[in-house]
């Protein structure tokens, strides 16, 4: 990681940007809990409209996909030396066990390799116990060549 100072703002301002820039994250009610260099911890409170099978109350896989895509994207963003737009190239999710109906889902992502063009991220989704994840995933993101327009304007990192 570079030693350049980075302006990342407070968690509250990050969350505001995360929701403002990404309307679907707001629609899902995603909450950022922590971010550090190349890492993110995001929470998704349970809602009945996320259910895939109404008989069991188990979440639809698409909800986990959105949660992990958002968490992995934020992890990649937090690894960048300066803010540029990123686009998901590829996302793989392994469903390890069914989600528990009614329970909040947490996701953690870690950007474990950053090149000039590509960020490599991996992570998990879980309820209470990180050692017993409900899904694991990996993603690659393409980095834009130029800084984000909105980031240039404010000089702030906007996930």
């Amino acid at each position: 990681m570079s030693d350049e100072p980075r302006v990342v703002g407070t968690l509250a301002s990050q969350l505001q940007a995360f929701h403002k820039i990404i309307p679907h994250n707001r629609a899902l009610g995603l909450e950022i809990l922590t971010t550090t260099d190349g890492r993110a911890h995001v929470r998704l409170p349970y809602r009945p409209e996320f259910v895939g099978d109404p008989h069991t109350g188990v979440l639809h896989g698409g909800v986990i996909t959105s949660l992990l895509d958002a968490t992995f994207g934020l992890s990649a963003f937090m690894a960048l030396p300066r803010p540029v737009s990123i686009a998901t190239l590829d996302l793989r999710i392994d469903y390890l066990r069914p989600a528990t109906p009614g329970a909040t889902v947490h996701a953690r992502g870690e950007c474990y390799r950053l090149t000039r063009s590509v960020a490599f991220v991996r992570g998990i989704a879980y309820h209470d116990d990180e050692d017993s994840p409900i899904a694991s995933g990996a993603a690659t993101f393409m980095l834009a060549n130029r800084p984000r327009r909105d980031a240039r304007a404010t000089g702030e990192v906007q996930p």
Partner: peptide, 27 residues
């Protein structure tokens, strides 16, 4: 719908919503 947007600067759909469509269609 506007709630599906992942990047309003382009604008572009959230990758998770496209993933959900793909998985749901497969199921």
């Amino acid at each position: 719908s506007d709630a599906l947007i992942g990047d309003p600067t382009l604008p572009a759909l959230h990758g998770g919503t496209i993933g959900a469509l793909l998985e749901n269609t497969a199921l």
